[in-house]
């Protein structure tokens, strides 16, 4: 009995020793990695940059804004970047009233907002994709057919080369940025006749995939194999086609400031420089947003 207990203690002691060794090893390795990071930071000229960058705006740009904030703060540990997600219009309002430095907007500025002093900078693009349920043989619609479907002039898939099946027109609720961009593309703001108005991207995906004959629209980055993607005027919404603008149904992710670049704080200017740098672009690429083709107009900053 006693012997067994001794053996047990011995085994426990061995386990403990092993753990200690492992922990020490990890610590040593970890601190070395830390050293390496530290030295790379020291080589950055502006690492001592101080200040804050406050952002507010579009919910669609959440992963983009959070990713950028994280990356930038890694690079400049003395700068505090904050991001709130209140909706595009609210973000633009906030930047115009001066309560934040940058407003995030998933739509272009309206003339009234530009007149009030808002300046836009297109950071990336988001494609909006037309989807149907997987059983639908129609793979391509023209822009005119799309308009007619969403106005209720075409009500059956056989009119656009499909099977004899009713079209169930689905979309997003009033106020949604996706809906706004979609209706703007078809040039029929508030004229669409929806059979189902759903209040989230996920709901549109779920209902379209489960309703035979349904059509709907969602953001490019949520696509999966539960739905079929439609080409518009023969162009499929690939990353490349959205980037170059060949696929026209897209919306810009815009960062908005009050006044031009020269009126911004050093931290905000550095933030935009970081966006354009190779590191910033790689970060955006990793987040999964679509960058604008090189040489394309990025907004008013350079104009």
């Amino acid at each position: 009995m006693k012997k067994m207990r001794e053996e047990q203690t011995e085994r426990n002691a061995k386990k403990l020793l092993m753990m200690v060794i492992v922990v020490i090893g990890l610590l040593a390795f970890g601190s070395r990695a830390d050293d390496m990071l530290g030295s790379s930071c020291q080589s950055v000229p502006n690492a001592s940059l101080r200040g804050t960058v406050a952002m507010a705006g579009s919910t669609s740009m959440e992963s983009l804004a959070n990713g950028l904030a994280e990356g930038f703060m890694n690079r400049y540990p003395q700068v505090m970047v904050t991001a709130e997600f209140t909706g595009s219009s609210a973000g633009i309002e906030a930047v115009l009233s001066g309560s934040v430095d940058i407003g995030n907007s998933s739509r272009q500025l309206r003339p009234a907002e530009k007149a009030a002093g808002a300046v836009e900078y297109v950071v990336a693009l988001d494609g909006i994709v037309m989807i149907t349920d997987v059983g639908n043989p129609v793979g391509d619609l023209t822009k005119e057919q799309l308009s007619a479907i969403y106005q209720g002039k075409i009500r059956n898939w056989c009119e656009v080369g499909g099977r004899d099946m009713a079209i169930v027109v689905m979309g997003r609720e009033a106020g949604s940025g996706t809906r706004e961009a979609f209706e703007e593309y078809l040039e029929m703001e508030d004229q669409c006749d929806y059979a189902n108005e759903l209040n989230s991207t996920g709901a549109v995906m779920a209902r379209v995939s489960s309703t035979p004959g349904a059509i709907g629209y969602v953001s490019w980055d949520v696509l999966d194999n539960t739905v079929e993607v439609l080409a518009i005027d023969g162009v499929r919404p690939t990353k490349e086609a959205i980037r170059t603008g060949r696929y026209g149904l897209s919306r810009p992710y815009v960062m908005v400031t009050r006044g031009g670049m020269e009126e911004q704080s050093e931290a905000v200017r550095e933030f935009f420089r970081y966006l354009e740098s190779g590191e910033g672009e790689m970060l955006l690429e990793n987040i999964g947003v679509i960058l604008i083709a090189p040489g394309e107009d990025k907004g008013n900053y350079h104009g």
Binding site: G175, A195, E197, N199
Partner: peptide, 26 residues
């Protein structure tokens, strides 16, 4: 269905409660 329509049996409709729920977000 949540579209604003005259309440007929096979029409997509919106109730007082769902009108608030569906659009409060944005």
């Amino acid at each position: 269905g949540n579209s604003v329509n005259l309440p007929l049996p096979f029409q997509s409709v919106r109730f007082l409660t769902t009108a608030i729920v569906s659009e409060m977000g944005y």
